[in-house]
Structure formats: structure tokens, C-alpha cells
């Protein structure tokens, strides 16, 4: 095929009905110069082996569905250019997650961790009726905007050594999102989230490896959020000795 280069894709396969453990399968793919890793996977699915399972949706690094290990590193496959790799490209499911099938990971554990930090605005009682719309200055927005860019792609979980070793750890994305709401001037639930943050698997389980921030495709910098949350958590804990819980 003209204008195309053939690369070998070593893809992790796992069929829960047949395989005892994941195995690898090789595919020769004629790739175009502008292809992303996801394009090659879609080619395999459409043209070579329709039994291959992988998640994807938007193709523009917004939906966070197509996170996989590419040559051992967690990547959004729709954003990862194939020209960055040599003749042989290894693609596997995200590390540190149970695997449902082939390149598809089990997400329920992540969703539980996410909801544990209450990632929504917690209103002060009666605030909505009394105060009307919440106004926010650009500075107030800037305090949390970076952390609101998370697309829940879970690459940070695949990179984190604590996630691999501490099953209760809430993990980078969930903690960063909790911190994002704690920094939001419209939110009144910081004390509630701090209780979760200082519990089992909370912010103090993080040992600041910083790998989450290294792999984040949206530059959210979850490790920065978690370290900041640690300090604010200690201040909230200390405040509890002088101001009753729920006080301001």
C-alpha cells in the first residue's frame, strides 16, 4: 500500500470465557503517517480481527474512553501519534485495573472512588433560595479551573504506585476532583470532604510519586491538588479543636 508503513502491534487479549490469563497477539498493520494508536486499533477491529475489544468514543481527547498502556506507558490512544513509536508497538489495558476483556478495564472501582469524594457542589442549607445566582470572580475561578479539566481517563490510576499497592486508595483523579470542589467559592462542603480525605485511603496515602501528573493528558496536575489538599486537611482538622464541626 503506497504511503503506508507496516508496524507490528502486540496487543493484549483476554477472553474471560476462554483464557486463564491475558495473552498477547501480534497484528501487522499498514499505518499512515498521521495515524494515532487508536486508528491502528480501529483498523485491526474493522479489517483484521473483529473480536478485538477496546473502548473509544470522541477521538479528540475529551471523552477519556481510550486510555491504554502503549509501550508500557498509560496514554490516550486518540492523542498518541504512531510516528513517535518504532516498528513494534505494544498495546495493553490500563495497568492497575482488573481487565474485563482484551483492552477493556473494569471501571466500577473507579466510579465508586469518584463518588466517595462527592464531586458536586454542596450547598449551604437554604443558600440557593436566599442568595440567587452564585457569582464568581476570575480569581475564584482560577483557584480550581485547572483541576476541573479532568476527563476521568484514569491514566493517573494506571501510573500511580500507591494505587497498585493500596486497594483502599481513592486515587489521583478522585482526590483532585474533591479538592477542585473544596476550592470552589460556591461550595460549602469542604469539611465533609475533608473527613473523607483524612480517612482510609485518603490524601495521606499519597507519597507524591508525581507519576499521575506526568501522564495526565489534560495537565490537571493531580499530585499538586493532593499535596495542597493535605495541608488544607490538616488546617481543617486543627480548626475542629476551636470551632465546632459545621461552623465557619
Amino acid at each position: 500500500m503506497s504511503g503506508r508503513e507496516t508496524k507490528t502491534f502486540v496487543v493484549t487479549r483476554f477472553d474471560p470465557d476462554r483464557d486463564e490469563a491475558p495473552r498477547t497477539q501480534e497484528y501487522e498493520v499498514p499505518v499512515r503517517g498521521d495515524w494515532k494508536v487508536l486508528d491502528a486499533l480501529n483498523y485491526i477491529k474493522d479489517e483484521v480481527d473483529p473480536t478485538l475489544s477496546h473502548r473509544w468514543s470522541c477521538r479528540m481527547a475529551v471523552c477519556g474512553s481510550c486510555g491504554m498502556q502503549v509501550n508500557g506507558e498509560p496514554k490516550l490512544t486518540c492523542k498518541t501519534a504512531l510516528r513517535e513509536y518504532g516498528e513494534r508497538v505494544e498495546v495493553g489495558p490500563l495497568a492497575n485495573f482488573p481487565v474485563v476483556r482484551d483492552l477493556v478495564i473494569e471501571m466500577d472501582g473507579f466510579m465508586e472512588r469518584l463518588s466517595a469524594v462527592k464531586p458536586w457542589i454542596l450547598e449551604a442549607k437554604g443558600a440557593a433560595e436566599v442568595e440567587g445566582p452564585h457569582r464568581q470572580t476570575p480569581d475564584e475561578l482560577a483557584a480550581f479551573k485547572q483541576y476541573s479539566m479532568c476527563i476521568n481517563c484514569m491514566l493517573c490510576y494506571a501510573a500511580c504506585p500507591v494505587v497498585a499497592n493500596e486497594p483502599d486508595f481513592l486515587g489521583p483523579a478522585a482526590l483532585a476532583l474533591g479538592h477542585r470542589y473544596n476550592q470552589d467559592s460556591r461550595d460549602h462542603g469542604a469539611s465533609e470532604r475533608h473527613e473523607v480525605f483524612r480517612g482510609e485511603g485518603g490524601v495521606f496515602s499519597c507519597s507524591y510519586a508525581n507519576e499521575c501528573s506526568e501522564v495526565c493528558p489534560k495537565n490537571v496536575d493531580p499530585s499538586k491538588a493532593i499535596q495542597q489538599a493535605k495541608l488544607l486537611n490538616v488546617l481543617d482538622w486543627a480548626k475542629g479543636f476551636v470551632v465546632p464541626r459545621g461552623g465557619k
Binding site: 492497575n96 481487565v99 474485563v100 497498585a164
Partner: peptide
């Protein structure tokens, strides 16, 4: 990686393969 890394509190709907850390 621990076999219970990122496990849900509910049992999975199908049999899953154990989590693995990135190679090297």
C-alpha cells in the same frame, strides 16, 4: 500490583483478569 487493586465493592459482572503494573 495487588490483585484487589481498583476492585469494586460489588462483584464484577464477568470474570476479570488480575490487575498488572506497567512492565519495568
Amino acid at each position: 500490583a495487588r490483585v484487589d487493586a481498583m476492585k469494586s465493592s460489588r462483584p464484577p459482572r464477568t470474570r476479570t483478569a488480575d490487575p498488572t503494573p506497567p512492565p519495568n
